[in-house]
Design a protein around this nucleic acid. Sequence first.
RNA 1: GCAGGGUUAGUGAAGCGGUCAAACACGGCAGACUGUAAAUCUGCUGGCUUAUGCCUUCGUAGGUUCGAAUCCUACACCCUGCA
Length: 362
Amino acid sequence: MNSTKNTPVYALHNTTNGVRSGILHTRAGAVKTPFFMPVGTRGAVRSLTPEQVKSTGAQLILGNTYHLHLDPGEKTIKKLGGLHAFMNWDGPILTDSGGFQVFSLAHMSKITEEGVTFNNPKNGDKVLLTPEKSMQIQLDLGADIIMAFDDVVGLDDTSRKRETEAFERTHRWLDRSIAEFKLLTKDMEKPPLLFGIAQGGLNKDLRKKSLEMVQSTDVDGIAIGGLSVGEGTPLMHDMLEFLSPLYDPARAHYLMGVGEPENMRFVIEHGIDMLDCVLPTRNARHGSSWITGDKKIHLTNAKYKEDISVIDSGCDCYTCQSGYSRGFLRHQFKVGETLAGTLTSIHNIRYLERLCEEYRQG
RNA sequence: GCAGGGUUAGUGAAGCGGUCAAACACGGCAGACUGUAAAUCUGCUGGCUUAUGCCUUCGUAGGUUCGAAUCCUACACCCUGCA
């Protein structure tokens, strides 16, 4: 893949006490690590314009294969100029493969060796997603970082019984993802990057094997999936501490789905280079935000009714710098004005971007 | 003036003899949210105090009944017709 070319995909500049600092090169530009990606599932980071996203310091946006395939469809997006033009974002885009929906929509999907069949919630149509299909869609969309299609399981008893199956299937699907990706990109001048995903639930043995298997391929980056799905901080931290010495240092390490500041600090200090999460935007729309010290406040609380201070006086985000008071934001939340969610999203994403920036060196 | 309808907790609105401190919605208070089926969901929302407990509530004042938000009488206010 791209790692065979002259410029390495990932340039590690510095490692201090487990914290890595470097540059990830994508065809849409180079980005500094560690970094956090806000989630724009359906082609937009909810309630934010690309300019607002950019103002937070976010370098990449994550989009979703499953959602964009259903609506409006990758062919439509391709006709409209590809995902970058479509959503008016010229920075790098990473697309998730749809693997997470195998888990989050498990109750309305059916898994077979071939792939996963979903029921389109809009019209009940059966939608088949396979590793090959996922690659085709992501390439049609024009993403700069493409994720392999994986089999994600939860942590309840039923799911735990599937742990091994999911681990094994994830690797067969990884091989198929890689094969399809190579087939479709062989004539491309500037192909996107492909990342493989390690699974294994909370089983260290499986996790180790899974990571080794992903790293035995020539994918451009290594992702850890299937965590932060309800296992709780101690178990997640324990697993990531266990995995930290096992990563290939020459490639980027992406922990999928983590965005609680406390968790982010821990994992960045244990070798993770990139993260994404819906938390800053979802929490923001629900009225909660982070302030200095990783503390969380509920802006809808009665005690902020006449609070003239900004969300966080130590913050350099647009919302805080503009002087929007907690009292104003509380009011807008209370009356259902979406501006409140927008302004708080800007703050929350900026909070996580600053957190990442503090770890970067050089 | 006559006839009819109405007055229920912060608001709207069910209930029309006991299982009613009173459905439901909104509002209010608090919480949850980790590769977004999430601008969503959960709990609480008369007082005391947390109990298979007590007290005070369904326009006001009386009455009937073992028992009334529910039935009767009077009064107050509101609405709709006819004058």
